[in-house]
Amino acid sequence: MLGQLITSGIAIGATYALMALAMVIIYKTSEVLNFAQGDMAMLSAFVAYMCLSTYGLGFAMSFTLALAFAFALGAFLEFAFLRRAKEPNVLGLIIITLGLEMMLYGLASWRWGSDQKDFPFPVSDFDVYQLGGDVVISQLNLVTLGVACALMILLFVFFRYTKVGVAMKATQQNQQAARLMGIRVGRIMMLTWGMSSVVGACAAFLIASTDTLDPNLMWTPQLKGFSAAVLGGMTSLVGAVLGGFILGVVENLFGGYVSVEFKAVVAFAVIVLILCVKPSGLFAKHYVRKV
């Protein structure tokens, strides 16, 4: 049972990791906690569903269209709402993302109703591989793991070695200075939001295929992703992914051996304990503002 709990924990942790990655991308560039992340992803999943079920398109086509939609949605929200904020403070920006979350939720529920839908996916969750003993892992879990790790490496390389990635980091550290250095801060922000939305959409497709598709799909994964990101350090991509795995495994072990009832909240207790020792998460450098 121990082996299976850890395997399942890593499998579910991969979905948390994807959401955490999405949140970290935005936080890294703009220090905004994006509460609309989950519902942006949910809306993209609905677009994929619509392409698949209503218009009968193939998987490749549908997912490409939906990811393109996700990118456009992220870029649009940044351009149309966040950039318009006058002299924004951090809390104000959080409230704007909350407002966006409600709007997206409302639109999705208005368009598709509240009935659960089945989200078709090319990879099965029922075809499993034996990992020795009676420990199994499904194809879908492997895909999720693969996507999470691949995206992490891609993003890591992107932020470290490409010009745009470095510009994004510069924007976070000092917007004013970045602008003076010739960085188009607005454009960078839009790009960030678009990228983050795409990563979130990937998470939503994978989650919807084991869960059922409805407007409430991404609320819990978003909270979990947020927790994972905080655990990893909010600005660290590797931290976000490892945070997701740690969260998944801790939850499953606690659920398996101690109490399933408190499984959902134990993560928070662990996080608070860890944060008391390392106030900026496991993998981020703690830096103190100057007076």
Binding site: T220, G248, A264
Partner: peptide, 20 residues
């Protein structure tokens, strides 16, 4: 007897409990 919280989405440990 295995309870599940409304917000929960990962039920592996729940299933393993019943299986065990």
């Amino acid at each position: 007897d295995v309870p599940v919280e409304v917000g929960e989405t990962d039920l592996a440990s729940h299933v393993l409990k019943m299986k065990k």
